[in-house]
């Protein structure tokens, strides 16, 4: 079980993805924009962040930038409706570990989360 911070301004989308992540056995904390997400990073110490891009206050790009500035080791995954290849590249350059398009499929989300959790476990055992 992992602690996952889910950042998306759409309550419809949060509900959908929370349900998927909970059914995989993870604990989900929701935030409705990047600013609130960042506030939760310190207190929650999540194992992983899943973020949308287009959000008021602070968008997903801003969130990724901030995490990069902090040298955060928490893996972040972008889940967005934006299918532009340039957007995907920008997110990966800013440190996102994966980029999924909405509507996200249960199997794709599960595979990404599992892969990242295994890679964190691998990185930790190397320390």
């Amino acid at each position: 079980m992992a602690k996952i911070l889910l950042v998306d301004d759409s309550s419809f989308q949060r509900k959908l993805m929370s349900k998927m992540l909970c059914s995989m056995g993870h604990r989900v904390t929701e935030a409705e924009n990047g600013r609130k997400g960042l506030d939760l990073v310190d207190t929650l110490e999540p194992d992983m962040i899943i973020t949308d891009l287009l959000m008021p206050e602070l968008d997903g790009i801003g969130l990724l930038r901030d995490l990069k500035k902090r040298d955060s080791a928490i893996p972040a995954v972008v889940v967005s409706a934006d299918i532009q290849e340039t957007t995907r590249q920008e997110c990966l350059q800013l440190g996102a570990r994966d980029f999924l398009n909405k509507p996200v499929k249960h199997a794709d989300l599960a595979a990404t989360v599992e892969r990242l959790l295994q890679s964190i476990a691998g990185e930790e055992s190397k320390c």
Binding site: S10, F12, Q13, L54, A81, D82, I83, Q84, K102, P103
Partner: peptide
């Protein structure tokens, strides 16, 4: 709003 976002992005993104 979310469906609109996904559909318009499909066209604009293409």
């Amino acid at each position: 709003r979310e469906v609109g976002n996904i559909l318009t992005n499909s066209v604009l993104g293409t």
